[in-house]
Measured scan of single mutants.
Amino acid sequence: NRHQFAPGTFSGVLQCLVCDKTLLGKESLQCSNCNANVHKGCKDAAPACT
């Protein structure tokens, strides 16, 4: 399954699913299917969408 990433819209601090570093809103993407949160630069390394 493929992620459907869109710019993240969340408040607070989240961790990137891929690199475990802190996500800030402006550099984040969120999958509309599984709600995975990743950095824009990490999206290609994200595991399959669940």
Results as ranks from 00 to 15, higher is better:
residue 47 P to C: 08
residue 13 V to R: 14
residue 28 S to E: 12
residue 18 V to F: 05
residue 27 E to Q: 03
residue 40 K to A: 15
residue 17 L to C: 07
residue 49 C to W: 01
residue 49 C to T: 06
residue 34 C to T: 01
residue 20 D to K: 13
residue 37 N to R: 08
residue 21 K to T: 12
residue 12 G to V: 04
residue 9 T to H: 06
residue 32 S to P: 14
residue 45 A to N: 12
residue 30 Q to R: 07
residue 24 L to Y: 13
residue 10 F to V: 12
residue 15 Q to W: 04
residue 35 N to T: 11
residue 6 A to E: 15
residue 25 G to C: 08
residue 34 C to P: 01
residue 45 A to K: 09
residue 13 V to A: 09
residue 11 S to P: 13
residue 47 P to Y: 08
residue 42 C to W: 00
residue 50 T to A: 11
residue 8 G to L: 04
residue 19 C to I: 00
residue 8 G to D: 06
residue 42 C to V: 02
residue 40 K to D: 15
residue 38 V to W: 03
residue 29 L to N: 14
residue 44 D to I: 04
residue 16 C to T: 02
residue 44 D to G: 12
residue 5 F to N: 04
residue 27 E to T: 02
residue 9 T to F: 03
residue 30 Q to K: 07
residue 24 L to P: 14
residue 9 T to R: 04
residue 46 A to S: 11
residue 40 K to Q: 13
residue 29 L to T: 09
residue 25 G to F: 03
residue 6 A to R: 15
residue 38 V to Q: 01
residue 2 R to G: 01
residue 39 H to P: 00
residue 44 D to F: 06
residue 45 A to G: 13
residue 19 C to K: 00
residue 20 D to C: 07
residue 29 L to K: 03
residue 42 C to D: 03
residue 19 C to E: 01
residue 29 L to M: 10
residue 22 T to N: 14
residue 9 T to G: 05
residue 13 V to H: 10
residue 8 G to Q: 07
residue 49 C to R: 04
residue 23 L to T: 04
residue 40 K to G: 14
residue 15 Q to L: 06
residue 38 V to E: 03
residue 9 T to Q: 08
residue 46 A to M: 13
residue 25 G to E: 14
residue 21 K to I: 09
residue 28 S to P: 03
residue 39 H to A: 02
residue 5 F to W: 02
residue 42 C to F: 00
residue 10 F to G: 15
residue 5 F to H: 01
residue 2 R to C: 08
residue 48 A to W: 06
residue 9 T to L: 05
residue 1 N to I: 13
residue 40 K to M: 14
residue 36 A to E: 10
residue 44 D to W: 05
residue 31 C to N: 02
residue 44 D to M: 08
residue 42 C to T: 02
residue 46 A to I: 09
residue 43 K to T: 11
residue 45 A to M: 09
residue 4 Q to A: 00
residue 33 N to R: 09
residue 41 G to R: 03
residue 39 H to I: 01
residue 4 Q to E: 10
residue 12 G to E: 13
residue 30 Q to N: 11
residue 33 N to V: 10
residue 32 S to Q: 10
residue 27 E to I: 00
residue 24 L to I: 11
residue 3 H to R: 01
residue 2 R to S: 09
residue 9 T to S: 08
residue 48 A to K: 12
residue 36 A to P: 01
residue 37 N to P: 13
residue 49 C to L: 03
residue 50 T to W: 15
residue 43 K to W: 09
residue 45 A to Y: 07
residue 16 C to D: 03
residue 12 G to C: 03
residue 19 C to G: 01
residue 47 P to Q: 07
residue 47 P to H: 07
residue 10 F to S: 14
residue 50 T to E: 15
residue 14 L to P: 04
residue 42 C to G: 02
residue 9 T to N: 11
residue 30 Q to L: 03
residue 47 P to D: 08
residue 25 G to N: 07
residue 19 C to D: 01
residue 20 D to V: 04
residue 32 S to C: 11
residue 3 H to F: 01
residue 20 D to G: 03
residue 30 Q to W: 07
residue 18 V to Q: 06
residue 6 A to D: 09
residue 31 C to V: 01
residue 17 L to I: 09
residue 18 V to E: 05
residue 25 G to Y: 05
residue 45 A to I: 15
residue 41 G to K: 05
residue 50 T to Q: 13
residue 41 G to I: 11
residue 46 A to H: 08
residue 34 C to R: 00
residue 29 L to E: 14
residue 14 L to C: 11
residue 29 L to C: 00
residue 45 A to L: 12
residue 32 S to M: 07
residue 37 N to M: 14
residue 40 K to R: 10
residue 5 F to A: 00
residue 16 C to R: 00
residue 34 C to N: 00
residue 14 L to W: 03
residue 45 A to T: 14
residue 40 K to E: 15
residue 48 A to L: 08
residue 23 L to N: 06
residue 49 C to N: 04
residue 25 G to R: 04
residue 44 D to L: 10
residue 3 H to Y: 01
residue 31 C to G: 01
residue 17 L to F: 09
residue 19 C to W: 00
residue 22 T to W: 04
residue 8 G to Y: 06
residue 9 T to Y: 02
residue 43 K to I: 12
residue 30 Q to T: 10
residue 9 T to K: 07
residue 15 Q to A: 09
residue 12 G to P: 02
residue 23 L to W: 03
residue 31 C to P: 01
residue 18 V to K: 05
residue 50 T to L: 04
residue 28 S to G: 14
residue 48 A to F: 15
residue 42 C to Y: 01
residue 49 C to E: 05
residue 48 A to Q: 08
residue 26 K to C: 09
residue 5 F to V: 02
residue 4 Q to G: 05
residue 21 K to E: 10
residue 46 A to K: 08
residue 25 G to V: 14
residue 4 Q to K: 11
residue 36 A to W: 07
residue 12 G to S: 05
residue 44 D to H: 13
residue 3 H to C: 07
residue 47 P to I: 13
residue 32 S to F: 06
residue 25 G to S: 13
residue 32 S to T: 11
residue 9 T to W: 03
residue 44 D to S: 14
residue 6 A to Y: 11
residue 42 C to H: 00
residue 36 A to D: 03
residue 8 G to I: 03
residue 30 Q to G: 12
residue 34 C to W: 00
residue 28 S to I: 06
residue 32 S to R: 10
residue 28 S to L: 10
residue 46 A to P: 04
residue 47 P to G: 12
residue 2 R to T: 12
residue 22 T to K: 07
residue 7 P to Q: 08
residue 39 H to T: 02
residue 44 D to C: 08
residue 26 K to T: 15
residue 48 A to T: 09
residue 41 G to T: 11
residue 17 L to Q: 10
residue 11 S to G: 13
residue 17 L to W: 07
residue 25 G to L: 05
residue 37 N to H: 08
residue 22 T to A: 09
residue 41 G to F: 08
residue 33 N to L: 12
residue 8 G to A: 12
residue 18 V to G: 11
residue 13 V to Q: 15
residue 26 K to G: 14
residue 9 T to A: 13
residue 30 Q to D: 09
residue 15 Q to E: 10
residue 2 R to A: 01
residue 15 Q to I: 09
residue 41 G to H: 06
residue 20 D to A: 06
residue 9 T to D: 11
residue 42 C to L: 02
residue 11 S to A: 12
residue 29 L to I: 14
residue 26 K to S: 13
residue 39 H to V: 01
residue 10 F to Y: 12
residue 12 G to W: 02
residue 15 Q to M: 09
residue 24 L to C: 13
residue 34 C to A: 00
residue 49 C to V: 03
residue 15 Q to H: 11
residue 20 D to F: 02
residue 46 A to L: 13
residue 36 A to Y: 12
residue 27 E to H: 00
residue 25 G to W: 03
residue 20 D to Y: 05
residue 49 C to A: 06
residue 20 D to M: 05
residue 8 G to F: 07
residue 32 S to I: 06
residue 1 N to H: 03
residue 37 N to E: 06
residue 38 V to H: 01
residue 7 P to H: 08
residue 33 N to S: 10
residue 24 L to F: 06
residue 40 K to P: 15
residue 48 A to E: 09
residue 23 L to S: 10
residue 5 F to P: 03
residue 2 R to Q: 12
residue 22 T to C: 07
residue 4 Q to H: 14
residue 10 F to M: 14
residue 21 K to D: 12
residue 31 C to K: 00
residue 21 K to P: 00
residue 3 H to D: 10
residue 26 K to D: 15
residue 42 C to M: 03
residue 25 G to K: 04
residue 4 Q to S: 06
residue 10 F to E: 15
residue 48 A to M: 08
residue 36 A to N: 08
residue 18 V to C: 08
residue 24 L to E: 14
residue 24 L to Q: 11
residue 37 N to Q: 12
residue 46 A to C: 07
residue 43 K to F: 13
residue 45 A to W: 09
residue 32 S to D: 08
residue 8 G to W: 02
residue 28 S to V: 08
residue 35 N to E: 14
residue 23 L to P: 04
residue 2 R to F: 14
residue 21 K to C: 06
residue 46 A to W: 05
residue 37 N to V: 07
residue 10 F to C: 11
residue 10 F to P: 09
residue 50 T to C: 06
residue 44 D to E: 14
residue 46 A to T: 12
residue 3 H to M: 03
residue 3 H to K: 04
residue 6 A to I: 15
residue 16 C to V: 00
residue 13 V to C: 15
residue 14 L to H: 12
residue 27 E to Y: 02
